[in-house]
Amino acid sequence: MSALAPILGDYRLSSAPATMPQPARQTKGVPGPENFEAIVDDYQRRLYGFALRMTGNREDAEEIVQDSFVRAYRALAKMDPQQRAELRLQPWLYTITLNVTRNRLRSKRPTNVALDSLADPDALLNETQEGPDQPEAIVDRAADMVLVEQALLQLPMHLRAAATLRFVEGRSHPEIAEILNQPIGTVKSHVHRAVRILRRILGPQVGRIVAPDNSTNQEED
């Protein structure tokens, strides 16, 4: 396998994993209080997943999603028909969820790791440790996923939001810019910094840990 394969669309990206997020079903018609139950049904899974990746806590994620939908309902109820028709529902719901998440995490005492990284995001980058000592020894895929989840939670919140939306939620740069209300350049920079920090935390072997057929491919090369 060519070392350039990843960017040229190799097996890791072209064959979308079964776990890849599926686009949320689009609620029919203009969103409003009258079809709000359908909106909840369509988006609860996606927003719950996002809140869980952002907080790492199921209870928090549940409450965040509940509060977010209540906020959305109240806001929709106050909008006039034209505002509702022009509303881009999915990014708007993400934005609300992110705001509720931010408020909630702010009011909670952060963990030591999160506190350190919030104070100085670059500290994570500058650490000399190159991830786990013997990554090749790790064979349990579920355990790897836990490592990845934990690494994500170590990122400062703004970088975590950018990386989660980009890779876990599969959103494009312009969409993320809309959700976060940031310029596209800032989004790209945050995504990039997040990946660099995750590489530090997880170590250089991480892609090989979760791609079980990678070693086989390399042998074939």
């Binding site: 990843p6 994620a61 990845v148 994500l152 989660t164 890779f167 590489r199 250089p204």
Partner: peptide, 23 residues
């Protein structure tokens, strides 16, 4: 690039959490 792709791949592979049926 390989390593960054590895990170991105890991993140896309995170299993979508199943919300509780009561949500």
């Amino acid at each position: 690039y390989e390593q960054y792709e590895g990170i991105a791949y890991c993140l896309t592979c995170l299993p979508p959490p199943e919300p509780p049926a009561t949500l």
